[in-house]
Design a protein around this nucleic acid. Structure first.
Lengths: 137, 137
DNA sequence: ATTAAAAATGTAATGAGTACAAACTTGTAA
DNA sequence: TTACAAGTTTGTACTCATTACATTTTTAAT
């Protein structure tokens, strides 16, 4: 499914800016920050505003097109892969790795409730020192 | 175990300010923010500085005395309960609920590694609308 | 008592994210 | 084709949680 189709399916009009942000998210599985996306798209769309990037990402998150990762307390990161998975955050280099989710998978078909709360998002992450940083010691 | 003993055990000198912050965390299981802690302790310790609260919380987190919860992208919350558990964050009222952890429990005795990464912290949280907010609809 | 290390404090700065109003685009219907 | 309204983008100014840093205070050891 193309980025355009994905947006149309969610009832989001596929403007040049929105397509560029979604394309970036789908083709760069690096969990970028809003700023990184903005800087990367500046060449392609010279008039791009940072506010547009923030607005677009919020729109995506609200419509289930992207995930907002609030692991790093400094920056929010975004993920174009909305399937159920966990993350590993390296305290030394700040890199975010994809990891398998460990735990009961919530039923995707209908919304799950837990202790009376309606669960809309499930997040799991680990923190520590990554493989790559450990090798440097 | 008293707050004082807990600090001594971790090699943290139990100053008035540190004891007050830890006491607050242990007696208020509300996952407070640094600002909430600061405001609550201002009466008790009139000379208290916000910087001290931040320094103290960072010290606690680095020594495993408290957890830093980065669920809400605006504010960091802190938890004096460092046992393995999950959280539920209500998107409407912002309340944080304790929840049981679902998934493989990491071995607490020795440090766990996952795909070569050294895991020091395990986090799990849910987002949605809480029981209390649902009743108001 | 002296002195050095540790801790606390206050102020100023940082910077990610947001509010908001103006400008621009798009589609639609006269 | 024009006119209009709704939706979208943009730039600027602002907020405010957190940090940097220099100064002051406290603690503990000699």
């Amino acid at each position: 499914m193309t980025a355009r189709e994905k947006l149309l399916e969610c009832g989001i009009s596929p403007s040049v800016q929105r397509l560029a942000v979604l394309d970036y998210l789908l083709n760069h599985r690096t969990h970028p920050t809003a700023d990184e996306i903005y800087l990367a798209l500046c060449d392609e769309i010279p008039t791009l505003s940072k506010t547009t990037v923030y607005n677009t990402l919020k729109l995506f998150v609200d419509n289930g097109v992207a995930l907002m990762l609030t692991i790093n307390e400094r920056n929010v990161h975004f993920d174009g892969d909305v399937s159920l998975h966990a993350h590993f955050y390296c305290k030394r280099c700040g890199h975010l790795y994809d990891m398998p989710y460990s735990g009961k998978h919530p039923s995707k078909s209908r919304m799950q409730t837990m202790e009376g709360h309606t669960v809309e998002e499930v997040h799991q992450y680990y923190k520590g020192i990554c493989r790559s940083c450990l090798q440097e010691d």
